[in-house]
């Protein structure tokens, strides 16, 4: 049996590398009974359409950034609530707390969660050092989802919208002055061509997830299904390690290329913590009882 698997990110991204290995392992473990072809970088299906394409069964399996669908269901937005889980351990606990609710939301769409891997922690790139929340005031800050927009709002930054591909020109011409993203993205897009400072704020660890169409999954032979789950578990474990290794390597690459790596000042950290607490409460309010329960479960741990 042969499965097409659309993924959003390019081949060299560690998520894609991990998935390519996952596909190889499935092929090997099933003796070729399940052959997954990875279509990376949105080459078959573009990112916003991947989830619904898996849901409708056009493709049986795919990868998406969970928070891309935060507008549809708050539970998809939990991992991108800023300053809630700011380390790999926290992110792991948040994932565990979120998982049952996430699986339930997916099952309503006829989807089954296979595994989920985080991006490196998010930091702020800018053309100068930002040492306090006040320094953000009036700064043209790139926002691309409700979470980043809320950060801008609460910190007094000016929200601007810039497509990723347009970032180099936008920074060069001053249409944007700060953006929040991972060290990996900074390396992939060679941010040193246009910014000078990286603030290691570890704001949140957004996660990708690999989902499979439940009907297609259940139609698999029991042996093949077990092999798929086993490869998924292995890919998840490997993915978290790769993500951590990538954080270190990418941060080093940034430094090697002349970007100043800034440990956030006391003032900036406290300011962000306050903003984060407020956004988390707002998230819980929007997510209703189930969401509040997830948040409490995470905080209780």
């Amino acid at each position: 049996q042969s499965w097409d698997m659309p993924t959003p990110y390019p081949d060299a991204t560690f998520h894609t590398v991990n998935i390519a290995q996952f596909a190889d392992e499935v092929r090997e473990a099933t003796g070729g009974a399940l052959d997954i072809t990875v279509h990376s970088a949105g080459s078959l299906i573009k990112h916003p359409e991947i989830k619904r394409t898996v849901r409708s069964g056009v493709v049986p399996i795919g990868e998406v950034l969970i928070s891309l669908h935060a507008n549809e269901n708050p539970i998809y937005g939990l991992d991108s609530v800023p300053f809630l889980a700011t380390s790999y351990e926290d992110a792991r606990r948040l994932y565990e707390a979120q998982r049952p609710a996430l699986e339930e939301a997916l099952s309503e769409e006829g989807l089954t969660l296979l595994f989920s891997v985080p991006w490196p922690p998010q930091g702020i790139y800018a053309g100068q050092e930002i040492d306090s929340i006040e320094a953000l005031r009036g700064l043209r800050f790139r926002t691309y989802n409700p979470g980043t927009a809320r950060i801008a709002e609460l910190s007094g930054a000016t929200p601007v919208q810039v497509e990723v591909a347009d970032l180099p020109t936008a920074f060069a011409t001053g249409r944007v002055e700060a953006t929040i993203t991972s060290p990996s993205t900074g390396v992939n897009s060679k941010f040193w061509d246009f910014v000078s400072h990286y603030h290691d704020t570890q704001a949140w660890l957004p996660r990708n997830m690999v989902v499979v169409n439940t009907a297609a999954f259940e139609a698999l032979e029991p042996g093949v299904r077990a092999a798929l789950l086993e490869a998924a578990a292995a890919a998840e474990a490997r993915g978290w390690e790769m993500s951590q290794a990538d954080t270190e390597a990418a941060t080093k690459t940034l430094a090697d290329n002349g970007i100043a790596i800034v440990v956030p000042s006391e003032g900036l950290s406290t300011g962000f913590q306050e903003i984060g607490a407020q956004i988390a409460d707002e998230w819980a309010a929007s997510a209703g009882e189930a969401g509040t329960a997830v948040l409490e479960a995470y905080r209780a741990n």
Partner: peptide, 18 residues
Amino acid sequence: PSIILIVYATATEQSVAR
């Protein structure tokens, strides 16, 4: 600017500016 160079840069992780 060029749309296809942006597409290529994204797919191969090369710098758009370069």
